[in-house]
Amino acid sequence: MFSKHGHLNIDGYSDADWAGNVTYRKSTSGYFTFVGGNLVTWRSKKRECSSFIQREAEFRGMTKGICELLWLRKLLTELGYKPTSTMNLFCDNKAAIAIAQNPVQHDRTKHVEVDRHFIKQKLEAKVFQFPFVKSEDQLADILTKAISSKAFHISLDQLGIGDIYAPT
C-alpha cells in the first residue's frame, strides 16, 4: 500500500556484499528506490566478475543504484512531475563514497574510471548526493547478505512492506 507523504522525493539505498559467494567469490549488489517515501523498485544481482576490493564492489553497486534513480527521475518528468530536490543514494561504505566524491583519480581506481566520470558529472550538477548511513540502518542489506530474522522484519517495516493477511 502506498502512503501519501506530501512529496515526490526520489531516494535509494545501495549495498554490496564483497565476494560473498563462497564457490566463485563473486559479489552481490542490490538497491531499493523510493518515490515519495514509497518503495517502487528493487534489484539484487550477482556480479559477472569478481571484485578485487570491497570498495570497488560497493562503488559498482552504487552506480547501478544511480542509474535507477536517474531513470525514475526521467519517468516522473515525462509524467509531468518534475522532481525539484536532490536525490539521495544512501550507502554504508565511506570508501566508496570517497571514490565518488574525490575529483582526483588514483591508479588503484582506474578500473572504475568510466563510472567515476559519469557520477562526477551528476554530482557537480547536484542531481544527487551520497549521505552515509550506518550499516545497521542500511535497508539494502536484505538483498545482499544473510541477516537475522529480527533485522529482516525491522527492514520490512521500514520498507513499508506488510502482511495484508495479518490480523489487525
Rank of each mutant, 00 (worst) to 15 (best):
A57H: 01
G61N: 07
Y31V: 08
D163H: 09
H117V: 01
D157M: 06
R43W: 00
D157N: 14
K122P: 00
A151S: 15
G36V: 05
R108Q: 12
L139K: 05
F34G: 08
D15K: 10
K94H: 05
G160T: 02
G12N: 00
F32T: 03
V40H: 05
T41V: 11
Q101A: 03
S14A: 15
L123G: 08
D163G: 05
K74E: 11
K82T: 12
G20A: 08
D15A: 15
S155P: 01
I53Q: 09
A166F: 10
V35W: 02
L69Q: 11
K150V: 14
M87V: 03
E124P: 00
N93C: 13
Y31N: 08
V114W: 00
S29F: 11
I164D: 03
W18I: 05
G20P: 03
K46C: 01
F128D: 03
V133Y: 04
A151I: 02
K94S: 14
P131K: 14
L8R: 07
W71C: 14
R55A: 14
G80S: 13
R73K: 15
A146W: 01
G12E: 00
N9A: 14
A19R: 13
C91L: 05
V127M: 13
G6D: 04
L70V: 09
L143E: 04
H117N: 14
G37F: 02
R73A: 13
H111R: 13
S3F: 04
